[in-house]
Design a binder for these strands. Structure first.
Lengths: 225, 225
DNA sequence: TTCATAGTTCGACGCTAACCGAAGTATGAA
DNA sequence: TTCATACTTCGGTTAGCGTCGAACTATGAA
């Protein structure tokens, strides 16, 4: 009698087809933009915006702003578990996952995100930087002393970069990988550096193409693989 | 995209406060009547009837007719689990259970159900009969050869009872215990027998009062405790 | 600055569903 | 048979909410 309404409040949120579509699309933990969710749910962007606001207010999803994009993800595994339970109750057959993100393989491999490296290479680089203790997880991402030495040795002027208004390091959500890569002034400087060294170059659109020796040098520099 | 609507269909059923109240009241596996559920949910009987029809159509609950009563129970533990999950999402505190059924302790202990024994004694008796293999679970409940000997030895004329139109054995849902007790011609004959032996007698209303030696004889006959 | 894209807010429309009164059915009691 | 209880069905009202068009804000690109 007391717990009915509280259950109903949450269940009602899951009980709309459009919202349920959005939530199931997020079930594998990826983050999607409002536009992507609108397409998946089959409703307009205005409608989607309203739905996402409700889901956020109930803390079922979290929002991460990124420029003019807003990425939404489930707030936790428990949400996915309840959805799984509901699927079980509905005696569902296997879920069909829609592939999102750039279809072009080149875009997936490496691309520019505003001004820094994104895609598989970008995510690999931040993973490596963490593994090598070049950066530490602070509120966001912070450069370590070791990292300062490392990037200085690479030819970057960290002090100059740190002077600007822009944060030196920024964890940036990757569009295709759905994981973080390195943004901020450092991320931008690194991409500039890679291009200056001839490791990679910009192609049409946002594609970044590493040359074979360039990719090898990149991997070697960050001890990848 | 394909599983959203199927989730939504179930979730929408849980998303109405009145239905959620009913379902949470059923979460401990007991069976309740439509009237009881109406009271718990705070809606009229008509409204409740409609809700229960929807929940039944979705196979979230099962209905068991019993004279002019209709008992409803959850169709399975998975329903309760999903409800638990939703409660968890809602960060609920402990649930408050409403006590249902006869408040009078005497009624709970033993009473007449139409014409046979119900309450704690009734449930104990059917449990014992199963344990002693006097009855077997058929579509309903069926007398075994061993049971036929047992009850014949007790002085019952099983052949005569079996000749009537009325089923010999019937599993009957107990009002207070929310579990089955033994009804049917055999159940009625047994209660008659207990009263004839002086083990128990009817008091005002539906209360059946076992005498202390009568209860002892009853327990001894069915090897209870 | 100007334009384009991403997203939100507002307002109005329309549909669904919860709700209850009233009437009808089914079962038990007297 | 008559009455009472338990429940269902029907009909009409009402309220909530999902939906989209249009306008507005914010960010990035040129």
């Amino acid at each position: 009698m007391k717990d009915g309404p509280v259950i109903a409040k949450i269940a009602a949120l899951l009980g709309d087809p459009a919202r349920a579509n959005m939530l199931t699309a997020l079930m594998d933990g990826r983050a999607l933009t409002a536009s992507e969710l609108a397409g998946l749910a089959g409703v307009t962007l205005q409608t989607t915006s309203g739905h996402l606001a409700k889901l956020s207010a109930a803390n079922l999803i979290l929002m991460e702003k990124q420029g003019r994009h807003r990425y939404f993800r489930l707030s936790g595994a428990d949400v996915a578990e309840v959805l799984e339970g509901l699927m079980g109750l509905a005696e569902r057959t296997g879920a069909v996952r829609l592939r999102t993100g750039p279809k072009d393989q080149a875009l997936r491999a490496a691309r520019i995100c505003y001004d820094h490296l994104a895609g598989e290479r970008g995510v690999e680089m931040l993973d490596a930087a963490r593994r090598l203790h070049l950066v530490a997880e602070d509120a966001d991402v912070a450069l370590t002393d070791k990292g300062r030495d490392f990037f200085t040795h690479m030819g970057l002027d960290i002090d100059r970069l740190a002077k600007g208004k822009r944060p030196l390091c920024r964890a940036c959500l990757d569009w295709s990988e759905r994981r973080n890569h390195l943004g901020g002034a450092l991320g931008a400087a690194l991409l500039d550096s890679f291009i200056a060294r001839g490791w990679a170059r910009r192609l049409e659109g946002r594609v970044i193409s590493f040359t074979p020796p360039g990719e090898q040098a990149f991997r070697s520099a960050f001890s990848i693989e």
